[in-house]
Amino acid sequence: MFIASDPWQGHDTTVLFTLVLAGVPALIGLVAYLGSRLTRQARRRYTSARTWRDVSLTAVAVGLALYLWGLLHILFLDDQEQAQECERHRPEETPALVGRRGDFIPLRLVCEASDGHDYSVVVPGYINPSLTVLLLLALVAAMTSGLLHYQQRTPTRKEN
């Protein structure tokens, strides 16, 4: 059991398991939906708005898969192994470690040194930059889809 003032707390396992248990079915649902969009019947009804919507959902699905991949890196290491990873990756000029914390956004396990510097271990370095790009793509695609859908639904005014 960790207390809030514990400098070696890492990630809260309840939150970690909840994210994994909620994320996996969400990812399966997104992939199933996107797979259904590939049928011949669905492709015939495609519009620009629907295409951008599916691009947005694809970016979300890939981002969710990457986030879950990062969570799995953390999930399979116990406290002792996390401490060993902190020691193994400690830069030469870094003095003694004084703590460890887990952040979910951005996803990282941070090792804290006595000189005030910290560094991240365990979670692959490509996860957070990739998530940023994918979420920006999802946002832009969703906004484009919404705008195109609005334009399709809004009648154009005819000038006399």
Rank of each mutant, 00 (worst) to 15 (best):
A32L: 15
P91Q: 01
F104P: 00
A22F: 15
H89C: 13
S114T: 07
I74V: 15
L16H: 04
Q82T: 13
S120F: 08
L66S: 03
L21Y: 11
D118E: 14
L27K: 05
L139G: 13
L77R: 08
A42E: 06
S36F: 10
P95A: 04
V110E: 13
H117G: 09
L66N: 01
Q151T: 07
V110T: 14
Q152H: 12
V31C: 09
Q84G: 13
A49H: 02
W69Y: 15
N128H: 08
P91Y: 04
A141Y: 00
L16G: 02
D78E: 12
V62E: 04
S145Q: 03
V60E: 00
L57Q: 09
P7D: 01
A96M: 11
M143C: 12
L57K: 08
R90K: 15
N160S: 11
P155N: 13
D12G: 08
V24R: 08
G29K: 06
G125Q: 11
L135C: 11
L134A: 07
A141S: 10
L68D: 04
R44Y: 10
Q80S: 12
E85D: 14
Q151L: 14
Q80D: 12
D12F: 05
G70V: 04
I74P: 03
N128K: 08
T14A: 15
S114V: 07
L134E: 04
V24G: 07
Q82S: 11
P7A: 02
P155H: 13
L137P: 04
V133Q: 06
S5G: 15
F76K: 10
R45I: 05
L64V: 14
L77I: 02
V133I: 13
G35T: 02
M143R: 12
F104Y: 06
L30C: 03
Q9P: 06
G10S: 04
R153N: 10
T154E: 11
A141L: 04
D115Q: 06
D79S: 14
L75P: 01
L75I: 08
V140I: 15
L66K: 01
V110Q: 12
G102M: 00
S130Q: 03
P124Q: 08
R45L: 09
A26T: 11
G116S: 02
A96W: 11
P124G: 07
S48P: 06
R45Y: 06
L147T: 13
T156G: 09
L30T: 00
L71W: 00
V55S: 06
K158F: 10
E93G: 14
V133Y: 10
G70L: 03
L134C: 07
S120P: 09
E81K: 12
N128A: 11
N160F: 10
V122Q: 00
M1T: 10
G35R: 01
T154W: 15
V60N: 01
G70H: 02
Y67A: 00
T144M: 12
Q152T: 10
